[in-house]
């Protein structure tokens, strides 16, 4: 019997499913040197959406290259923005 026809017991294709790969990506973003817990990765049908806010353009690049590496072969939409460092233009009045 070839592994191709082995069915669930052989556990090959399921382990490569987008869900697990996304979970590993999330874990790598959070626990690796990136320490990026503010980036969310969601499976949306056939595609993966990666979004969030990071402190710098360099962080954004690091996240994007990690995403490309972990999710190679999947269609990925990235919407990662860099934190806005400007002063506020108004204050909130608390009564």
């Amino acid at each position: 019997m070839s592994t191709h026809d082995a069915g669930p017991a052989a556990g090959t294709s399921a382990a490569r499913s987008p869900e697990y790969r996304v979970a590993h990506l999330q874990d790598r973003l959070a626990s690796g040197h990136l320490g990026e817990l503010g980036v969310r990765t969601e499976v949306r049908g056939e595609t993966v959406l990666v979004h969030g806010t990071v402190p710098s353009a360099r962080c954004r690049e690091d996240v994007l290259s990690t995403v490309r590496e972990e999710l190679a072969g999947l269609e990925v939409h990235c919407d990662i923005v860099v934190s806005e460092p400007s002063s506020p233009d108004h204050a909130e009045e608390l009564s």
């Binding site: 969030g52 806010t53 806005e84 400007s86 002063s87 204050a91 608390l94 009564s95």
Partner: peptide
């Protein structure tokens, strides 16, 4: 009153609250 001032939430370097 509770305010979440995480920078990605407020989208600024800080927010200012006027407290009487």
């Amino acid at each position: 009153k509770v305010r979440n001032v995480a920078q990605p939430v407020i989208g600024r370097a800080f927010h200012v609250y006027h407290l009487p």
